[in-house]
Nucleic acid binder design. Structure first.
Length: 374
DNA sequence: TACATTTGACCGCT
DNA sequence: AGCGGTCAAATGTA
């Protein structure tokens, strides 16, 4: 388990570093645009600092101990929401109909918390770029708010089995816990990744991607599946700027059945709030898509382009059965980043600290990080 | 007309 | 038996 824990930490570290890089890029971009406000830049700076402090925390607490990341009230890492008991393996399963009978199929699962600013006049979780169709709603025992059940709109057409559950937090109504299950296999998912070939107008400037996965704040506090994490990371990058979320993974899979020690410093708080200013300022000015998506249920308040993943870099060598798929995703994303006219010219402030395409998690990562972290 | 949402019923699991 | 999750008919919307 220790190895698995280290591995998850590495993933987390990668996410932090990637986030920091993207934030820095965003900042650089903002420094070059006349309409960028000081506030916007300030926010980016703070996020960059926070991101790197998280990364440092990860390095400092990489012993695999179950470090609880200090979380603001209501934003802690999770523990299974409300149920009071750990999610059973069964809970990770999804019902699929095959052979005329209902069969349970296990899917990777990860949870994130998304906070939306009340002042922004937005309610509910943001759109993660996918098209979701609500298929149910249930009052959950002990929860003040009902839980919404969504599945990919393309489920029937393309057989995409991705689903998500949206649960408004009891403590803080502005926080939504979104649990994703399964990966998108629909064309929409592919489009998201292969954004590099998309017309510029359909691309979100990297600026938009500062945090979240499938994903917002794209640091999964706990990681389930590598590919999952990557998908989340990609999504985070895409959605990041708009919202901040917390990626919680309470699921333990065979490939990553370990607990990732949550970050430690108080700056690790993964809760980011979309302020009105962010919604109205230049950040959003770079968004070509509305924040409120009427097309999706009320739970999708932030509609973002599905091609904003062009900031993700780093072809992680996941030891996963789906590695090829992951690599495909990452490669596409990497390609996007490289080819993006918006992002391509932006260099990482700390140098070309790109992850080696064949990067594997080992001590070298830590030493390299420590080098530019000091 | 097509698609999305609502909502009570149903099912599987614990 | 109770709960969470899903189905599917009814209803709403563009």
């Amino acid at each position: 388990m220790e190895n698995m824990g280290d591995w998850e930490q590495n993933n987390h570290l990668i996410n932090e570093l990637t986030q920091g890089r993207e934030l820095a890029r965003q900042l650089q971009f903002n420094l070059n645009v006349p309409y960028s406000s000081h506030e916007t830049r300030e926010i980016l700076v703070q996020k960059i600092i926070s991101s790197y402090e998280k990364a440092l925390s990860i390095l400092n607490f990489s012993s695999g101990t179950s470090v609880g990341e200090p979380q603001p009230a209501g934003l802690g890492i999770e523990s299974p929401p409300l149920s009071g008991s750990p999610r059973s393996e069964d809970s990770d399963r999804d019902l699929t109909e095959q052979d005329g009978s209902k069969k349970r199929k296990t899917f990777p699962r990860w949870t994130k918390r998304v906070r939306v600013s009340p002042g922004a006049g937005l309610e509910g979780p943001l759109d993660d770029g996918f098209s979701w169709r609500k298929y149910g709603q249930k009052d959950i025992l002990g929860a003040k708010h009902p839980r919404g059940y969504y599945r990919c709109t393309h489920r029937n057409v393309q057989g995409c089995l991705a689903t998500k559950q949206v649960q408004r937090s009891d403590e803080d109504p502005t926080i939504f816990e979104i649990t994703y299950r399964g990966r998108h296999t629909c064309a929409q998912a592919s489009k998201m990744v292969a954004s590099s070939s998309a017309p510029l107008e359909n691309q979100e400037p990297i600026i938009n991607s500062n945090i979240e996965p499938q994903q917002h704040n794209y640091q999964p506090l706990q990681i389930t599946h590598p590919q999952q994490q990557q998908q989340e990371a990609l999504l985070n990058l895409r959605e990041g700027l708009t919202i901040v979320t917390e990626d919680l993974d309470v699921h333990q899979q065979s490939l990553a059945s370990f607990h990732f020690p949550p970050a430690i410093s108080n700056t690790n708080t993964e809760s980011h709030v979309i302020s009105s200013s962010m919604v109205n300022n230049n950040f959003t000015g770079n968004f070509s898509h509305s924040f409120i998506s009427p097309a999706t249920s009320g739970t999708n308040y932030f509609s973002t382009s599905s091609s904003g993943m062009n900031s993700f870099q780093g072809n992680l060598n996941f030891r996963s059965s789906d590695q090829s798929e992951l690599n495909e995703i990452v490669s596409a994303a990497t390609s996007s980043a490289t080819n993006s006219p918006t992002v391509g010219s932006l260099d990482f402030p700390f140098g070309n600290a790109e992850f080696d395409p064949n990067f594997t998690f080992d001590s070298s990562l830590f030493s390299s990080f420590q080098r530019f972290g000091k």
